[in-house]
Amino acid sequence: MPIKVGIPRALLFYEYYSLWISFFEELGAEVIVSEKTNKEIIDIGVKNTVDEACLPVKVFHGHVMDLKNRVDYIFIPRIISLTEGEYICPKFCGLPEMIKYSIKDIPKFIDTTINFRKSKKNLNRTVMEIGSYITQDKKKIKRAFEIATEKYNNHRMLMETGLLPNDMLKKDFLGEVPQPSKKDKVLLLGHPYNIYDSYMSMEVIDKLRKHGLRVVTCDNLETDVIDEKAKTLNKKMFWSFGRKILGTTLHAIEDDGVCGIIYMACFGCGLDSVIAEIVERKVRRSSDKPFAMLSLDEHTGEAGINTRIEAFVDMIRWREDHEDNLSTYR
């Protein structure tokens, strides 16, 4: 019987799912991904996490609870750094501990440390360590990682054409998503686990699309473009996602096709409190694009979000309809 590996559908799953799933599948493991986020998962997550943690971490706990009786291993890597010289949120470094001490009777973890802060040299060792939970065959692990990387790169290429992870995660995904005919682009910023988790984000992407807007995110932009833009910042952003978000913002400010920017933050997120502030200052200072900030938390009332999205869309539309470029002194 194949080893069952559980992957919680939360946090960096939305960034790396194609890599992780195909890697474990190539190794011969059976991959079980937790259910889509729903009310029960959030409730059970909130109950099992310390009060002060942010919603994404609570949701992650919920997904682990969902998996815990169905799998042999749960994949919770200790991620310290994904890119040279950069970090991600400190909570990711302590995630295995948080889970270990908050949830009882939990299956074994695959909690390999992923730390590329100094260099990517230890990539090979990291991959081998993760693979060794499933098989001892080093060649097989290497081959599996190659295939998985290829899939991941394809996945990224697809996103650069305008697709979003939550389109591709849909069961009836055929390789194409009908985009709204209008060309107005709205830039949706935020951590991938906030914006792509459709339950948590209250389906903000679908809602915007229903209004005839085209939603773009950091993932639709080539990494080179983001890197180049991010370099122009006067202080280097040392959080990987923050750098992506800021780079994209700088690009969007110059892009006339982008008619509005929405930042989706999470209540109590330490990173968002800094990044959103910098983004807002940049947008306000060097462009006249509408900017909205939406905060998420455990509350499930949708009306507030709906009202604000509608008001935001109205603002964009009215600009188009009523802008006459006449001098105000008449």
């Binding site: 310390v50 002060e52 470094c93 948080m98 330490g270 409190s273």
Partner: peptide
Amino acid sequence: LLPFTCMPEIVAQSILTV
């Protein structure tokens, strides 16, 4: 003692309960 939304201390806090 921790400031509200302090990221590292939240991790510590979940360990302190144990």
